[in-house]
Amino acid sequence: MSWVSLGSLALPFQMQRNGVQLRDSVAQHSAELTTGRVAAPQQHLRGDLGELAVIESRLGRIQTYETVIGQNETVLETAQTSLQRFASLGALLSNQVLTAAFADSGDQSYESVGSAARTALGDMVSVLSVSVAGRTLFSGAAVDRGPLVSADQILAEVETAVSGLQTADEIHATLESFFLDPGGVFETAIYQGTGQSPGGALDDAQVASPLPDAADPAIRRHLMAVTMAALMEDPDLGLSRAETRNLAFKTMEEIESNGGAVTGLQAGIGFDQELLEQRLQRLSHERDSLVRARQGLIGTDPFESASVLEETRHRLESLYALTSRISRLSLLEYLR
């Protein structure tokens, strides 16, 4: 006869209930051993979850801030690389202008420098149009578009502004007004950005510094110098060879004197990069402290959890073995 018919039905139901309890216990202790935390914090803390809630909330904010800082680090690194490229384009052109001016070997050398300057201007516009995750870096708050019109459009505006001028001094003064005057042609027809892009939040009361934009005076002066060099190739300007040479010297002087200002922009970004790294380290230390505090509230001893798990597993296996033996009991087997 089957074991379920012995005595009453209480025995199989009792063993089934014990099996469910032991399986639940195995699952609980397995989870605690894996996570290092109790499976039921509310029961463990007897309903006093205030301190735990504060810790969990702060850990969540720290994770958000670390993500934002990581994004800002990527933005700053990209901006730093772009400004380095921007400065190197100016320095390379300065060397070419210097060689042509001191060699003074003829109009062909100045035309070659003018052609190189047009290429450098296009590269500079491209460098300043760099974006990260769909956000243009040097357009201020207008992150959805490039900061400048194309190099060809810039040169067209410049050529119109200097048309009819005969001396390097006149061209230099006109271009200074063109690029640097508030409300001038640069701000109204060349620069497409607006305002300053706000920095991302680094903590509850701290935000990152805004990036420099393409309207910064240091960037404007470099663009002005390169544009001035590009005019050496303009046959319609009609400068004498002596004035073309003077224009070359003024180009070189502008690039060299403004190099420190561009370097200052790079230094500012480098300072911000260092601040981000320091802030990331502080958040990391705070996170570690909070994790230890949380572990003190709801943490489990891994050795104790492993021991209880092994004991529970052994009890469950014993129950299975006992159930199997009972299920095979019958009068026929007993009489044999």
Rank of each mutant, 00 (worst) to 15 (best):
I69H: 01
G70A: 06
V75Q: 06
S94N: 12
D144M: 10
A79W: 00
G122H: 07
V97R: 02
G134E: 07
L83I: 03
I55P: 00
V127C: 11
D144N: 15
Y65A: 00
L128Y: 01
A142L: 15
E51P: 07
F86A: 10
Q84S: 13
A141D: 10
R58M: 06
F102M: 11
L59H: 02
S82F: 02
Q71R: 12
L52M: 08
R85E: 10
A103E: 04
S94L: 01
Q96W: 03
V127G: 14
L89V: 12
V54F: 10
V125R: 04
L45E: 11
S139G: 10
T99N: 03
V54I: 15
T64C: 04
S57I: 10
V54Y: 09
E56W: 03
R58L: 09
A79R: 01
Q84A: 15
T119M: 06
L52D: 07
L59Q: 10
R85H: 13
L121G: 11
T67L: 05
V54G: 07
F138Y: 07
S88W: 03
R46F: 15
A100N: 03
E73R: 02
T78Y: 09
L59C: 05
R145W: 13
R118T: 12
D144Y: 10
T81L: 15
Q96Y: 05
R135D: 04
A101N: 04
L93S: 04
A87K: 12
E77Y: 08
A117R: 03
L121Q: 03
V97P: 00
D144H: 15
L89S: 10
M124P: 14
L137I: 03
A91T: 15
D107Y: 04
L137M: 06
S109R: 04
S112E: 09
L45Q: 12
T67W: 01
S112F: 05
G106M: 07
D144F: 09
R118I: 03
A141Y: 08
D104S: 13
T119S: 12
G140H: 08
V113D: 01
A103R: 10
S82I: 06
A116E: 06
L128D: 14
L45R: 09
S109V: 01
G50C: 03
E66F: 00
A87S: 12
G47R: 08
T81E: 09
E73L: 02
Y65E: 05
L93T: 04
A116S: 12
A120H: 02
A101K: 04
L83P: 01
Q96A: 08
Q71K: 04
T64M: 13
F86H: 07
A142P: 05
A133L: 05
S109D: 13
L89A: 15
V143L: 09
S94P: 08
T78A: 13
Q80G: 15
A101F: 02
A87I: 02
A133S: 14
T67E: 02
L45V: 05
I62F: 01
G134F: 14
T67M: 03
L45S: 07
A133F: 02
T119E: 12
L59V: 11
D104K: 07
I69F: 00
S126Y: 04
A101W: 01
Q108S: 15
L92R: 14
S131I: 10
Q63F: 06
Y110G: 09
T64V: 14
A103P: 02
G50D: 04
